[in-house]
């Protein structure tokens, strides 16, 4: 079995573009395997053969690489990869319950796909979003702070074809489309979704409260001290912070996460 000539031609055009990015051809192997996965939803024997041919290495060398990395699938993947982080922190925070609930609900186990071909379930290792635990990923987009109930709702929506949006990320693409982005082809969706979620902004928000408390205290000291009691007695010295340049005052408008500015906060009312 080999690819149809038309498919092969198309993949070759893309492959040449990938290879041209690197000083040495073989560096293109990982993105090439993502490209092959974008065609068939897994790294098939056809894909291994074509990658080997394009890089002038053996199929054994390609297969050795393809089987080393967990993102390369050896069987056709469902349209949506649904991953549940079950590394320690997420597991403790509820990832274990989420994963077992989904296994039962979908009737499948790790790295298995529902009969309708919509969902492949996986347990994941840490995906660098621990401040949003427990975390799930759908086609490598973040679904933060999940519960067993929200997870069931999520997979039901995916299977029913209802629109689903990640907490932080772009509108969901298919597994094959995402594989193409991983191969290094822009899909023009970088501007979708927020800059950050609330946990990402937690420190910034507290810093803003610190700064405005400091300013308020200074103002009070400058004029009268009738409001002194309202200012935190252990407020920080704003001079210890960065220059105004490095630490711009945040506003509620520019920071959608800031829904809880203290009453009367000069910044929070903007």
């Amino acid at each position: 079995m080999t690819y149809d000539i038309e498919v092969r031609d198309r993949l070759e055009v893309d492959a040449k573009e990938i290879i041209a990015r690197y000083p040495r051809r073989r560096s293109a192997l990982l993105p090439l395997l993502h490209l092959m996965q974008s065609e068939e939803g897994y790294v098939s024997p056809n894909g291994i053969e074509l990658a080997a041919e394009l890089l002038d290495i053996t199929t054994a060398e390609v297969a050795a690489v393809a089987t080393f990395y967990t993102m390369y699938k050896r069987r056709p993947n469902g349209e949506y990869s649904v991953g549940v982080c079950t590394n320690t922190l997420c597991a403790v925070m509820g990832g274990d319950q989420i994963f077992s609930t989904l296994k039962e609900h979908l009737g499948i186990g790790h790295d298995e796909t529902t009969d309708d071909g919509r969902v492949t379930l996986e347990h994941l290792e840490c995906n660098a979003a621990c401040d949003y635990a427990p975390v799930m990923m759908v086609n490598w987009e973040f679904f933060d702070n999940q519960t067993p109930e929200s997870a069931v709702g999520l997979v039901d929506d995916l299977r029913a074809g209802r629109e689903v949006r990640p907490t932080r990320g772009a509108g969901l693409c298919s597994f094959k489309q995402v594989s193409r982005v991983l191969a290094g082809f822009h899909d023009g969706r970088a501007d979708e979704g927020p800059a950050a979620g609330p946990a990402t902004l937690a420190g910034l928000e507290i810093h803003r409260e610190q700064s405005s408390a400091g300013r308020r205290r200074r103002t009070t000291e400058d004029s009268s001290d009738t409001d002194r009691a309202a200012a935190p007695s252990d407020g920080p010295d704003p001079r210890q912070g960065q220059s105004a340049h490095d630490a711009p005052a945040q506003t509620a408008e520019s920071d959608p996460a800031n829904t809880a500015a203290p009453t009367g906060d000069e910044d929070g009312t903007a």
Binding site: L201, G203, D234, Q242, S254
Partner: peptide, 29 residues
């Protein structure tokens, strides 16, 4: 005395479209 936070790397994160060059350059990018 409460510790003071000092956002430098994170200074732009709360901005709308903070990932763009335009916004980054507004903050000395």
């Amino acid at each position: 005395m409460t510790a003071t936070l000092t956002p430098v790397l994170s200074r732009t994160w709360g901005e709308d479209r903070s990932w763009t060059r335009e916004v980054y350059e507004r903050f000395d990018g």
